[in-house]
């Protein structure tokens, strides 16, 4: 480290009595220089565009001509669609589909990842190998895994159909029927473990062993140990995973885009896919921006709700209750 090598102290740079303020100022200037990439980026890629999109949401605009101010008309269209669903807006349809998907996916994914973490927490040989195997689907690009799963799910000659034929059942067409497509996407989404499992694993490993020993002495069975020690001790992790997973799942796009294209009959037309469709297919940037703002409100509301409820069920060690 060349910088630390002894260099004769430069007396002129030593802070004089009045120099202290100047040094502070210099440090301040340096701080703003160092964070400039983020600060400028925040202004031009986040804050500016957000205000801009709020403005666009009050207009109709196809990008090629000038935007026309229409006031709240876009929001009114969305509001009306809640009561009279229309194929031209698809707001309530996409909201419904996304809500069902989120309600199914978030708890299921959490259970799967928790079980995976509990498996990896066992003290058996070959764990690093199993850990690598458990993670591998996560690193495979979704475009590639969608290819192989589409083939497996293909109704005529796909692996699943072959298996069903063995049981004397006909070919499945789950991805191609509007009643089953969404649930099938949920099932496909459960393949592979994510960072959730990692957090659960870290959480499990930090639970002190003596709690389980005490419970065993008191005669607690496996389920009771899980219910009264593991779950409460994991509740901060569950809380974090719940918030992140809810926000992520509500913004789902990939699976619909890669597997079903939103069909059949809009059964998997996710909210974000709808924004994409209105923006880049129909060039209706006004109403698409309004949808984006509604999405922000929904996500904020969901997060606030979970935050509010957290004091009732999240247990933090060292936290003093009743203050």
């Amino acid at each position: 480290m060349s910088a630390v090598q002894a260099v004769a102290p430069d007396k002129s740079r030593r802070p004089a009595k009045t120099g202290l303020g100047r040094m502070r100022l210099r440090e301040e200037r340096e701080f703003y220089l160092f964070v400039a990439p983020w600060l400028v980026g925040f202004l031009i890629w986040t804050a500016g565009p957000m205000i801009y999109s709020l403005y666009i949401s009050f207009t109709t605009w196809d990008v090629f001509t000038k935007p026309v101010w229409v006031g709240l008309q876009n929001y009114a269209t969305l509001w009306h669609d809640l009561f009279e669903p229309s194929q031209l807006v698809l707001f309530s349809q996409s909201l419904k589909v996304t809500t069902i998907y989120t309600v199914l996916m978030v708890p299921l994914r959490m259970i799967v990842n928790l079980l995976g973490a509990m498996l990896l927490n066992q003290r058996i040989r070959g764990m690093p190998f199993f850990r690598a195997v458990f993670y591998s689907p996560t690193v495979i690009p979704s475009v590639a895994s969608a290819l192989v799963w589409t083939w497996i799910m293909q109704s005529n000659g796909g692996l699943v159909s072959i298996f069903l034929n063995k049981l004397g059942l006909p070919n499945q067409t789950w991805l191609y029927r509007s009643k089953t497509a969404l649930v099938t996407l949920v099932g496909l989404g459960l393949w592979g473990f994510g960072s959730q499992m990692l957090f659960f694993l870290a959480g499990l490993q930090s639970i002190p062993e003596h709690l389980y020993e005490a419970a065993k002495i008191d005669g607690a069975g496996q389920w009771q140990q899980f219910r009264y020690i593991t779950v409460p001790m994991l509740s901060p992790v569950i809380f974090y995973n719940l918030v992140m997973s809810m926000m992520g799942t509500f913004q789902a796009f990939d699976s619909a885009f890669l597997y079903t294209g939103g069909g059949p009959n809009y059964a998997t037309h996710f909210y974000v896919l709808n924004i994409y469709t209105f923006g880049w297919r129909y060039f209706k940037f006004g109403i698409a921006s309004a949808m984006a703002w509604v999405l922000l409100v929904i996500i904020l509301a969901m997060t606030m709700l979970v935050l509010r409820s957290s004091s009732a069920w999240v247990y933090y060690e060292g936290e003093v209750k009743g203050r």
């Binding site: 957000m50 999109s53 913004q251 923006g279």
Partner: peptide, 13 residues
């Protein structure tokens, strides 16, 4: 916490 979809459209523009 911000969903990225918020800014897609305007960043594109």
């Amino acid at each position: 916490m911000l969903p990225s979809q918020m800014t897609w459209l305007s960043v594109y523009i």
